[in-house]
Design a protein around this nucleic acid. Structure first.
Length: 273
DNA sequence: AAAACTACCTGAGTGC
DNA sequence: TGCACTCAGGTAGTTT
C-alpha cells in the first residue's frame, strides 16, 4: 500500500523518466476513479507540453505543465509501471501516458481509491488546500503541533497523526511504527503530548520515513519491473501487523486494538500512556 | 465543533 | 473446487 515513502520513491523515479520530457499521448480507460477524471482539462493542460516540475505534497504527486499540474494520488492500491507500449497489459490499467520519445507509463489501481485531477496554476485545489504540513518539510515544528493539539478535547495521538488536515501523509503503518519508536501509547490524548515529546515524535517520524525512503531507493530499479509490489519495499516493521508476536524490545506480546475503525498495533509495556 | 463513522473497491484469506 | 463471507486501507463527506 503506497504510504508517503513509496510516493516519494515514485516521485524520485519519475524525475529521470519524465522531467522535461513532452507528454505526447494520453489515454484514459475509464471516466472515474475515486473522483471523475477531468480528462479534457488534463489533456488540454498537459498534452504536448513538457513536464516542468515534479513535486510531492503528502501522498499526492504533481506533474507540472506550464498552466497547471496533474494531481495524482495512488489511493490504496495504485501504482505506475513502465511498459513497452500504449497497450494495457495488466488488469485495472486506467490511464496510459507516452512521453517523448518512447517512455510509456501505465497507471494501475485495482481498488480505484486513487485519483487523477487537474490543478490550474494559481488556483490550488481543495484537496491540497486542506492538507497540513508535510512531515519531511521545514514547515512542520513541534511548537506548531503542540499548539494544534492544545485545543483538541479527545483525539488520540494516533488519530491525530493520521489526520491529513493536521499532518500530511501519515498512514496507519507509519503512525503505529512512529509511536512505538517514540515509546508513546497510541491511546494517549494528543493534547497531553508535551513539547519534548512532540520534538521526539516529529524527529522519530522523519527518521523512520527517511530510512524507509532510503530503503526504497535501493530497490528503485524495480519500479521498472512489471511487478509493482517490488517497488513497495518492506521497511523493517517493529509492531505493524505483529499481533501476539513478542515485542522486539521487551518480548511482551504486541497488542492490537481498533481506533476509529483502524487497527492499531502497539506494545503496552514499552509505550507509555 | 470535534471526532467518529461510512462509503468507495478489489483481492486475499478463511471457513464451510 | 467453489462459494460466502470478512478484512484491509486513504480520505472526502456525513453523522453523531
Amino acid at each position: 500500500m503506497p504510504e508517503l515513502p513509496e510516493v516519494e520513491t515514485l516521485k524520485r523515479a519519475l524525475i529521470p523518466l519524465v522531467l522535461n520530457k513532452r507528454l505526447v499521448k494520453l489515454n484514459f480507460l475509464r471516466k472515474n476513479l475515486r473522483f471523475p477524471i477531468p480528462s479534457t482539462k488534463i489533456r488540454k493542460g498537459l498534452l504536448n507540453q513538457d513536464v516542468a516540475k515534479i513535486t510531492r505534497r503528502g501522498k499526492y504527486i504533481l506533474l507540472h505543465g506550464p498552466d497547471g499540474a496533474l494531481l495524482i494520488h495512488l489511493g490504496m492500491s495504485g501504482r505506475f509501471t513502465q511498459a513497452p507500449s500504449m497497450k494495457p497489459f495488466e488488469k485495472h490499467t486506467h490511464a496510459v501516458f507516452k512521453f517523448a520519445p518512447e517512455i510509456y507509463l501505465h497507471y494501475i489501481d485495482p481498488r480505484r481509491f486513487g485519483c487523477l485531477l487537474w490543478v490550474p496554476n494559481n488556483q490550488g485545489h481543495p484537496l491540497l488546500n486542506k492538507i497540513g504540513p508535510d512531515p519531511l518539510g521545514k514547515a512542520i515544528t513541534a511548537d506548531e503541533m503542540k499548539l494544534l493539539a492544545k485545543n483538541c478535547k479527545k483525539i488520540s495521538i494516533k488519530n491525530f497523526l493520521m489526520d491529513s488536515k493536521r499532518i500530511a501523509g501519515v498512514g496507519n503503518i507509519y503512525a503505529c511504527e512512529t509511536l512505538f519508536a517514540a515509546k508513546i501509547s497510541p491511546k494517549k490524548p494528543a493534547r497531553r503530548i508535551n513539547s519534548s515529546q512532540w520534538t521526539l515524535l516529529l524527529s522519530t517520524l522523519r527518521d523512520i520515513l527517511q530510512r524507509s525512503i532510503a530503503a526504497g531507493g535501493t530497490t528503485l530499479r524495480d519500479f521498472y519491473s512489471t511487478d509493482g509490489n517490488q517497488g513497495y519495499y518492506k521497511f523493517s516493521l517493529a509492531v505493524y501487523g505483529k499481533e501476539n508476536e513478542p515485542c522486539i524490545v521487551c518480548t511482551q506480546p504486541i497488542k492490537r486494538i481498533t481506533q476509529s475503525a483502524r487497527s492499531t498495533f502497539y506494545c503496552k509495556e514499552c509505550q507509555r500512556p
